[in-house]
Amino acid sequence: MPNPLQGAQFALAAHRINQLPADLGAEVAFAGRSNAGKSSALNALTGHKGLARTSKTPGRTQQMVAFTLPLQVDGSAARLIDLPGYGYAKVPEDLREHWKHEIDAYLHRRQSLRGVVLIADIRHPLKAFDQMMLDFCVATALPCHLLLTKADKLSRNQAAQSLATIRRGLGEGVTVQAFSSTAGTGLDDAREAVVALLGRRRIDQASA
């Protein structure tokens, strides 16, 4: 099937939320620990191997990176936002605090944000950061799609068991799937999930 995310292009990298593109249109944020395969997932979803930087040293994404999409939502621009990886990168404490503040501000204030794709390694239980992000999304009614990466590292039965275990602990508004950027597992479903998130309206806007 055609890739609805094909044609994504780098727009800019921002150190602060006020440096991001104008808060118009619709965007989906990608979040996750630095070693969960976030850049590889973005590249696979967009069909652009060099879109997001991948590295053997996790934690290289230390800015908010905006990618524009060729599709539009209600006639307005659509974007993907790659948030800095968390929890693994060896960065100074003041930089960690900076990103904690900026990501929190982004999630609370960004009106064009339609949902979050949270990247986690299917081989391991969800980490504290993952659970914090899920709790935030549930509490604020922000849709979240949990992408359990590296499914190719497990047998089909093991992946199914991990998926079922994690699914039981999820709150309302959170969807989940197994995924592998290497093997292409769940690729079409993940793309459809991203497009669906882009098409959502924020509750505060819908009720205004």
Rank of each mutant, 00 (worst) to 15 (best):
I81C: 01
V138I: 11
L71W: 03
T68A: 12
A41F: 00
L69K: 11
L95G: 05
G85F: 04
K127A: 09
M64D: 06
K100D: 10
A52N: 07
D135A: 15
G47C: 06
P125T: 06
A78C: 11
T140L: 09
Q9K: 15
K90W: 06
Q111P: 01
A66W: 05
L80F: 06
L12C: 14
S34A: 14
R16A: 13
A31M: 09
Q9M: 13
I81K: 00
Q9N: 08
R79S: 08
A139P: 03
K56I: 01
F30D: 01
L5N: 00
R60L: 04
F10Y: 15
S39Y: 00
A22D: 05
R96K: 15
L24T: 15
Q63D: 07
A14T: 07
A11M: 04
F30M: 10
K56C: 04
L42Y: 00
Q62E: 05
K100R: 14
R123P: 00
G59C: 10
M64R: 03
A22F: 05
H108K: 13
N43Q: 10
A26E: 00
R114N: 12
L107K: 12
L45F: 07
T57Y: 03
F67I: 00
Y106W: 03
V138T: 15
S34C: 06
A22V: 12
H124R: 14
A8Y: 05
A44H: 08
D104F: 10
L24C: 12
L126T: 06
D104G: 15
H101W: 05
Y88C: 10
F10P: 04
A26V: 01
R114K: 15
T54V: 15
V65H: 11
A139M: 04
R79M: 07
L80R: 08
L71I: 11
A13T: 14
L45I: 05
T54L: 10
G115N: 01
W99C: 06
G75V: 05
D130Q: 07
G75M: 09
M132D: 13
A89P: 06
S76P: 02
L80H: 02
Q62F: 07
P125W: 00
R53K: 15
E97Y: 10
Y106M: 12
L80S: 01
L126C: 07
F136V: 12
S76N: 14
F10A: 06
K38H: 02
V73N: 10
T46F: 02
D94W: 11
Y88D: 08
A22M: 09
A31P: 01
G47D: 11
R109L: 12
K38D: 00
V28Y: 08
E93K: 14
M133H: 01
Q9R: 15
F10V: 07
L42D: 03
C137K: 01
Q63C: 13
D23E: 09
H15I: 06
T61I: 13
E102V: 05
L71G: 13
H108T: 08
E102Y: 07
L126D: 04
K90P: 05
G87P: 07
Q62Y: 03
L83W: 02
T68Q: 03
